[in-house]
Nucleic acid binder design. Structure first.
Lengths: 124, 124
DNA sequence: GCTCTGTATCGACGTTTGTCGATATCCCTC
DNA sequence: GAGGGATATCGACAAACGTCGATACAGAGC
């Protein structure tokens, strides 16, 4: 394979593309397609290790973190890499290699997208 | 078993107790415990069928819905029941039997708890 | 009482997930 | 270009998950 399986979306967006989701959760019955998209986002955050990795990136000074800064979450290095890949594929993180290191940051508009799901006026 | 496995919390709360979560996702590194709690909530919403069931309940007039009103999501009746149980155990829905029917509603403060995770001023 | 309808539980199944060790790839430095 | 550190991929395995049909339980009405 290669890259390109962002939430199973059509192969339009490279990888860490802005999250395309979704109507508010409480606004009405979700369509099957929207439910699948939202479920994919939630699934990406449904693992404790991924949640900690995400929060480490999100709270890191400068808005980005090297893998080496965040990989102390109690699992092996391949597992950390695996989880970061899942977060990337879900469109929640983006990655960029700079020299020896790879830096991750929260994908733009992710929090806004999630708050929209929860039917809150995005206060940003 | 019986009931009582709300997110794996101590057996304090009956079942649909208010969600005890959690610090904002972007505020700092999550503790292991908080990550587990949040992950359990997200996991409950990480299935398309559960998401549709949840949104059907959330958007139903009167704030509650009979199982019979929402069970048309393309899976068998036992599966619907199974998913509703998961949502109950996660503290996202509460249920009440009235005569022949069982009514589900969104657990109080769930949306507020989730918005708190996303670090948004809960505008409710 | 019996029967019918609505909901929950049980047991089984195939699939997906999280994890690891081994190994490959990238790129810097010497 | 050889060596070495940082990430990613591969292959395997156990555990968890979503689904189903069969069945049990609960309440309403006869």
């Amino acid at each position: 394979m290669s890259n390109s399986e962002t939430v199973g979306l059509p192969v339009l967006e490279p990888e860490g593309a802005a999250v395309p989701c979704c109507p508010p959760l409480t606004a009405g019955e979700l369509s099957v397609r929207d439910a699948e998209r939202m479920a994919a986002m939630f699934k990406a955050l449904s693992d404790p290790v991924r949640l900690r990795l995400f929060s480490k990136v999100a709270s890191h000074p400068g808005g980005e973190a090297c893998v080496c800064d965040i990989q102390d979450v109690g699992v092996s290095q391949p597992t950390v890499s695996h989880h970061l890949k899942k977060l990337r594929e879900a469109g929640l993180l983006t990655s960029e290699r700079r020299g020896t290191w790879v830096y991750y940051r929260v994908a733009p508009s992710v929090v806004a997208a999630m708050s929209a799901m929860l039917d809150l006026p995005a206060t940003t």
